[in-house]
Design a protein around this nucleic acid. Structure first.
Lengths: 226, 226
DNA sequence: GTTGACAACATACTCGGTAGTATGTTTGCC
DNA sequence: GGCAAACATACTACCGAGTATGTTGTCAAC
């Protein structure tokens, strides 16, 4: 059994609940969000939610896993590009920032996910889901670590204690999750501008000068669209 | 009436509760932490806590305000230094990172503080406390913003959209709150190393090369000890 | 076109946990 | 010996997770 089994069966109504839950979890956190809160947000009652999800924790797990999926999707195109670590990293960062902004709710839920370690993972299935998620987190970090490490060894980045540098880089590109607030007329152009700025800062932290034009150029060459 | 009134009256036992609460709030967040949890952590019962604090929310407010105080203390020495914006900023950042690591629990609670906006600030007094806190947060950000702005205008930093740059800088120096985990033999030397690394990254994000030796040197000259 | 079955919910209820209170109990101090 | 601070204990009231059961619409089979 996987969560995705039920997920595939009922696309639309199921998806509505997911988004609503993500938004509620984002605003108040897991503990402070009641099932009734999510239901009210949907204009329904808990009956609807429990029809699709066996428990609050399971609902959260699906939201969290979805967030992780989205995060990977944002980074993968850059990661799989062949060539310079500097360019690959910049592409990864750029894609990630866009994901952070556009999937704001799901991404914020990912933060709470860590705290859940202490929390009750009551069933075996939930324990496994948590375990799997932590592995995915590591996997995600590892992708950035690898590329950064490679760049340092090639002498393309400023030297420094790798682990702290990686953490600083990650926290910078994760940054918009904390400080970006959705505004009315925000469109893709605005998102790109933010991403350019953040990527410029993050690459600068590694000792590399990086401009928005450089991002555009690689995207052209590699055919990365996102 | 202020929180600090009761605070000054009973120093030691009061302070114990604060630290315990900070640690519990850090681990599980505000909503998931019960008063009984804090009491158990202290080896006591809720009677003790309610003897000092009228409600859970008030307890949280004191912890949060304390965290804010500590944050200001870490940054002030650098901020009040006369001279180059670059050097001032580096000192501020360095002090802040040290605070982040050494007062880990209180700092993490500051994060949850924002979420509390949605939450119930039930009494007038609590609403005022929240209001005051949000002002302090802005004040804190403004200190960094001012110095960074000054540096940009002086042409000492890479150009960029100020607000995004400031946010990226802040999130970087706040970083250790997320990724630093306390380990056995960690002492001040280790903390300094981390701070040096993070400051190097953050300053790099602004387009400035910055080394640990430069931090040492200014501290010598300005007499900043922390 | 009627019936039966099932999905997709809503409603009504249970029960454990938690904030807050009211009431002891001990200890030090005057 | 009395009084108050500093708690512990006992209790209430409520909220929220999970469950059990009711209701409605739809679709298929006969």
């Amino acid at each position: 059994m996987t969560y995705s089994a039920a997920e595939q069966a009922k696309p639309d109504r199921y998806e509505e609940i997911l988004s609503a839950a993500a938004e509620c979890f984002r605003q108040q956190g897991f503990a402070a969000t009641s099932i009734d809160t999510v239901a009210r947000y949907l204009g329904s009652t808990k009956g609807r939610i429990y029809h699709y999800f066996p428990s609050k924790m399971d609902l959260f797990n699906v939201v969290r896993d979805r967030g992780m999926e989205l995060a990977f999707e944002g980074v993968m195109p850059g990661y799989e590009t062949k060539g310079d670590p500097v360019e690959r990293l910049a592409l990864m960062a750029h894609g990630h920032v866009l994901t952070m902004i556009q999937c704001h709710a799901f991404m914020q839920v990912l933060l709470d996910g860590l705290r859940m370690r202490r929390y009750g993972a009551t069933t075996d299935f939930q324990r496994q889901a948590l375990e799997r998620h932590l592995e995915q987190r590591n996997e995600f970090e590892r992708m950035f670590r690898d590329v950064i490490q490679e760049g340092i060894e090639a002498g393309q980045f400023r030297e420094g204690a790798v682990s702290f540098v990686v953490q600083s880089f990650l926290v910078t590109v994760n940054g918009p999750v904390f400080w970006y607030v959705e505004r009315e007329g925000d469109d893709l152009t605005k998102f790109q501008r933010i991403a350019d700025e953040v990527v410029g800062f993050a690459m600068g932290g590694l000792g590399v000068q990086w401009t928005a034009e450089m991002t555009r150029k690689i995207k052209q060459n590699t055919g990365v669209s996102k």
